[in-house]
Design a protein around this nucleic acid. Structure first.
Lengths: 213, 213
DNA sequence: CGATAAATTAAACACATGTTTAAAATTGGT
DNA sequence: ACCAATTTTAAACATGTGTTTAATTTATCG
């Protein structure tokens, strides 16, 4: 049978799967505790509140992902020439390493980020910016170095477009995978989506600025 | 004073603003009816249910937007050469015309689409596909014509990346506008975001396909 | 006007949520 | 084995939700 998993971890495991699939607010503590086979009250006992549980779920991933990304970015920083593609490639390994938390860890983390942005009014975003602001700054700086033709503001906006395309793809990945299977008879894993995504976002970021009519 | 607006329209107006800002499930009928200055029970009287209200809100926009987009796409179809940029430019005018429903109509509609995708499990997506599937098909066909180097499946995926970047940008536009104001001292309207977005998504879609290592 | 239909209203309903409580069970250390 | 601390449990709590009801008001029109 299964090994000895603490109630706290049972809750985290069940919660992250449900959060990633349905979002935070749409997932009830009763669903989580039922899936985890623990008592309803244990969430409040171990985490204090649902909000604290949400933060704990995200923190477990961010505390693994962010340092990994930061190391990759630092490494790239020493290069004389930097391409957008190289910057985004920095995400691959740290993202892939999230399988150590959960087999579907990479997809789960991206979904969580997506819901965090969409649902909670800046609360979780501010938390992330505060905790890992230096990583984000390094990322923006490198992207700007790779695209000196853009203004800092353009880089800012395009980075968020990238974020949008990424999390959206993950959040709706299940439905899209089913459609792709039906229409093109192709099996696309969560990692395959990343592979399809990176050329897209790199191309978008490298696009020339336009003054527009 | 305000003109004579029917209770039904008062509800629609209040609902679409709240839905666009907080999502469907997070908006209660009590909030809506309070904002609209109507009785709580009038929603069920005029629309039958909350779900029917959500559909009515979206339908009011889609029934204006989709035919407009379709006309633009048909017009483009006759061209001998088609660029990705031209395809996406087809969105501009129909989107801008949504101000006839609401001054912030374009932003509202995109937010609604975003929440529709993220929240309701395929239900609303299937509705849209069924109702306006031919428009979507025309769109995909044109994009493929503009990018014959891509497979149909690549076009499919990239189109959804585009959708993700777009709705995400709109859903979180308020927070992003505030950050941009603080960091770059720039005022960015909802339309300005579209102007920044279009080069990005066109660049992403035009990106070369990669077999990847 | 007066009668019939439509619309509005306040109240209650049934249900789901996060949280708290207090008792019971389990664990850990001496 | 014992006691104290930790953990688990079932039940209740307070609150918010969409919906329904039945009475009242307003509008429609012969």
């Amino acid at each position: 049978m299964a090994a000895r998993i603490s109630t706290k971890d049972k809750i985290l495991n069940a919660a992250e799967a449900l959060f990633a699939e349905h979002g935070f607010e749409q997932t009830s503590l009763r669903q989580i505790t039922a899936d985890a086979n623990v008592n309803l009250a244990s969430v409040n006992y171990h985490f204090g509140s649902k909000k604290a549980l949400i933060q704990a779920v995200i923190a477990r991933y961010s505390s693994l992902f962010m340092p990994g990304l930061d190391a990759k970015l630092k490494q790239l920083q020493s290069h004389p020439q930097i391409s957008t593609r190289e910057v985004f490639d920095c995400f691959r390994e740290p993202l892939r390493d999230l399988v150590h938390i959960n087999k579907r860890g990479p997809a789960i983390y991206l979904s969580l980020l997506g819901y965090a942005y969409a649902e909670i009014q800046g609360h979780l975003r501010r938390f992330t910016m505060q905790e890992y602001g230096d990583v984000i700054l390094r990322l923006v700086t490198l992207l700007h170095a790779a695209n000196p033709q853009l203004t800092a503001e353009d880089v800012f906006w395009r980075l968020h477009f990238v974020l949008g395309a990424t999390v959206f793809a993950q959040v709706s990945s299940q439905a899209l995978q089913e459609i792709a299977k039906a229409d093109f008879n192709s099996d696309v894993s969560a990692e395959d989506i990343i592979d399809k995504l990176i050329p897209f976002i790199a191309g978008g970021l490298d696009a020339p600025h336009e003054n527009e009519i």
